[in-house]
Amino acid sequence: MAVEARPAGGRPVHRTGLRRRLGLHTLSAREALFGYSIVGVVYLFFLIFVFGPMFLAFGVSLTWWDALSPISQAEFIGLENYRYIFFDERFRLSLLHDAEYTVKAYVGQIGLGLLLALLINNLRRWQTVARIITFSPVVLPLVATAILFVILMNPTWGLFNVILRALGLPPSTWLQDPTTAMNSVVLMVIWKYVGYYIVLFLAALQTVPQEYYDAAHIDGAGPWQTFWHITWPLIRPAFLFISIINIIANAQVFTPIFVMTGGGPARATEVVVVLTYNTAFTNFQYSRANAMAVVLFFIILALTLLQLRIMRRGGVESY
């Protein structure tokens, strides 16, 4: 139905005509416009606050700029920052620390998360209580948790060493020693986030139809066979997805390390983002720090693409 609007003193405008001229005369076109306008807001947000700074960071990485002077004074130096960090031993070391942290945290969070999820999923009673207990560290503020662990890990009067001594075990130097510091930080993040992965795995486990388990039980399958032939194939897509988000999150670690060790002792826990921070805000080599961030971005992107490829090969396109 054509709707008329009559501007004061003007000719009536037929909205249908206007819509026709704009190509919006069909319902589907109008709905598409409405949909794009809603989604467009989100894209605009991403464009301004995510992609914009990303492109800016890449642009700055090709210059020499200290962030203290106006950006107009940035000097274009091409790939010099990339050349520098490529040969910089400290950057390479920070990449190794990043890899160490990511692998250890991945094994701890995903391995323990899956194991506990399997256990909780099999609980006949107290499942909700178990979920609440394991998820509660996730809701604690990260900085507060990190500070708490610094106290617990104090080599002299921290609770962890008190417990070790009570059990007749030798105390650890925890965060004080380069050989134990990284493991100590990883221990904290495993405790903090394992509940999150438990919830994700539980969601996946609960999609497995009970009938399959019943059939396997009738056929005499043991727990390992049931897991390997029924549970695992059905949760594998979820497992791969969870792996991607875990690796992306861990590879960019900053807060726990910044709070617990500051990258020390003796740079033993200096990961890429901590080095990037120090390069930008202590050394005022802002553009070099941007180059480090760009390199880390491409490493994470490559890992993500690799995982996606593995997923597709495994026939899990739905993720």
Binding site: Q176, D177, P178, G264, P265, A266, R267, N278, T282, N283, F284
Partner: peptide
């Protein structure tokens, strides 16, 4: 200039020293 960076360099290396690394 660069004083904060000098602090960090000293810290990282002296901490390694006193930990006998």
């Amino acid at each position: 200039r660069g004083l904060a960076q000098l602090y960090n360099i000293l810290r990282d290396n002296q901490d390694a020293l006193v930990l006998k690394k």
